[in-house]
Design a protein around this nucleic acid. Sequence first.
DNA 1: CCTTAAATTGAACGATCGTTCAATATTGTC
DNA 2: GACAATATTGAACGATCGTTCAATTTAAGG
Lengths: 226, 226
Amino acid sequence: MSSKSPGSVPPSQPRRRAVSKRSLATSLSILDAAERLFSERGYEGASVRDIAKAAGAQIASISFHHVSKETLFERVVERRASELSQLRLDALAALKQRQQPVTLDAVLSAFLRPYLEKAGAGDPQWLAYARLVAMVSADARWHTISERCFDPTAGVFIAEIAKLFPRTDSSAIAVSFIFSVSAMLSLSTSSWRIEALAGGNRQAMDQLADQLVRFCEAGMRAALEA
Amino acid sequence: MSSKSPGSVPPSQPRRRAVSKRSLATSLSILDAAERLFSERGYEGASVRDIAKAAGAQIASISFHHVSKETLFERVVERRASELSQLRLDALAALKQRQQPVTLDAVLSAFLRPYLEKAGAGDPQWLAYARLVAMVSADARWHTISERCFDPTAGVFIAEIAKLFPRTDSSAIAVSFIFSVSAMLSLSTSSWRIEALAGGNRQAMDQLADQLVRFCEAGMRAALEA
DNA sequence: CCTTAAATTGAACGATCGTTCAATATTGTC
DNA sequence: GACAATATTGAACGATCGTTCAATTTAAGG
């Protein structure tokens, strides 16, 4: 028996109301603050009190809007994941419409560039999110989130690359793809290392993006054609 | 004035004693347990109580042997760092003695293979340490540890690679090197992803190592010769 | 064997953790 | 404007955190 009454006696279900602007703003500012603090200090390192303070909200508001700390973390990751996936899939679709057959270089660009452009555009929230993606991808404790948010799109691109290497088995392709993804994520997690090892000789973000795509393209080709 | 008395009145410095076998075993078991739990749950996620319990020791023994949680973490990272650096530098030295001039492939192998062999040999402690290295390398909070433990050796290899690309500026070389290192670390952090994306088609560790070296060698060459 | 430095033990410290609650304030809906 | 669903507030909950302490046990040095 569902709660929806089909018949004679309407069980007086409490009338629903729309969310107020203030409530939505609170919910969003909590997500923003959590995005920043989780990416800076990790899951256990960021307390709900610090998140609430950074959001200008009460600690109880976090439970009210986002159930618990764990679901708050999941919602932070999920929020921009679909947007990122859509950008990647759109780029791939546009590519397949433009040129047939597609090149490995173009497929990798379709996957890598949306992340790099979002992470490098200067938006501190997207920069924090980029670090968060790297953190989730590297930690086995969050592998269910990765499976849900990132693996489906990754599977599409791996399948697309597999068409370009029909003689290579899929496991080798997946491994090379993970090499490429981790190199991409390193631009978020190791930006301080890059600055240190490079000796202050900063490069523009789009130059780094070009270098990454060239690196991954040649790397995959060498690893998969062997 | 030092505590060592040079002259007439020996100020009765308390007689020192050697460490007992039990004490040393306790200290080591704490390091081992911390290595495992830190790599599984992160720094804040692993409590000193859990570490003590896993080590079969008292919580107070952790402070006694390793001062604090933070220095315990640093000692865990430092313990095997010098061994790893030595293996890499030895491989590089042997390489330079064997062939002159050296090849990019051989230099990268000298850096990558010691890590892969230690992480893939089956020793659960080294496997945990490999994940820990990935965690430290990716987290800006531990960048002082990375600078101390890993960057010096990385600098040696970057300088060696720079000799092979005399026309390329060092920042581009450092970036490509970080791409390679992060791809290496992904074999520790994303082993579960590799198994998932590869569809159960497991590869032997040495095959993965070969694939990684080919990937990085070709990637660097393409990124640096452009 | 005796002395005593070193090490272990169990309990306790104050601080902070994530979560919950009743009371109050806000605001969409009629 | 009145009603009630929604949202905010401030305080408190028990649990766990890293650290410290005095008392006890262990074992190296003479």
